[in-house]
């Protein structure tokens, strides 16, 4: 179902719940994986995904369609992730690297990476990036999102996003090469 059709149905109080259910089914997987890449843990991703859609419900009536519905939902999900990681850091007085280390421990415990040393190092390197740079890297590298759309999601200029991705890629290569020499 097209976004416009979903939005039109949502404006009708009698069809609102049905329309929202269709919206959730359409975007739940994308939102979940977007969040999961940032927080790594499934339970955290599950909670945040639900929170994202509750916010979508609460504000969809005021959605002015300046951006596409997908971009708007992605922006809400992005803000939720950054708030979650920031509050986690403040709550436990953790420096940046400790949150990265916690996420790295979770990914090391993941059986799907067993035996793939290069991929494990790549994931460790990604998790060492600052949250916002990691977000930019994920959107570009995994989601292959155009820079213009990334600018709408993150509220950052295209030039700044290109620079951020370039720096992130250099940091990742540096980390993997440094650790390859130590192995």
């Amino acid at each position: 179902m097209e976004d416009q059709e979903i939005l039109a149905k949502f404006r009708d109080p009698a069809a609102r719940n049905v329309a929202f259910n269709q919206l959730v089914r359409k975007y739940q997987s994308k939102v979940y994986w977007h969040v999961r890449k940032m927080v790594v843990d499934h339970d955290d991703a599950d909670d945040l995904t639900q929170d994202v859609f509750i916010k979508v419900w609460n504000h969809l009536e005021n959605f002015r369609q300046d951006a596409s519905l997908f971009t708007w939902i992605y922006r809400i999900a992005t803000n939720e992730c950054l708030s979650f990681l920031g509050s986690k850091r403040r709550k436990f007085f953790l420096p940046l690297n400790d949150v990265g280390a916690e996420l790295t421990a979770k990914i090391e415990a993941d059986e799907s990476l067993a035996g793939d040393e290069v991929e494990l190092k790549l994931q460790k390197a990604i998790l060492r990036l600052p949250d916002k740079q990691r977000l930019v890297f994920n959107l570009r590298y995994y989601d292959e999102m155009p820079y213009e759309q990334m600018a709408e999601v993150t509220g950052t200029s295209v030039g700044a996003l290109k620079a951020s991705y370039h720096h992130a890629a250099k940091k990742i290569e540096q980390y993997i090469n440094d650790h390859a020499q130590n192995d």
Binding site: N17, V24, Y32, K37, H42, A45, D46, D110
Partner: peptide, 20 residues
């Protein structure tokens, strides 16, 4: 996708109900 473990079985079937 990054090599993360998949969510539990039928997770995406049940998620809309839980959200609603």
């Amino acid at each position: 996708q990054p090599p993360l473990s998949l969510p539990p079985d039928r997770y995406f079937e049940q998620l809309p109900t839980r959200i609603m």
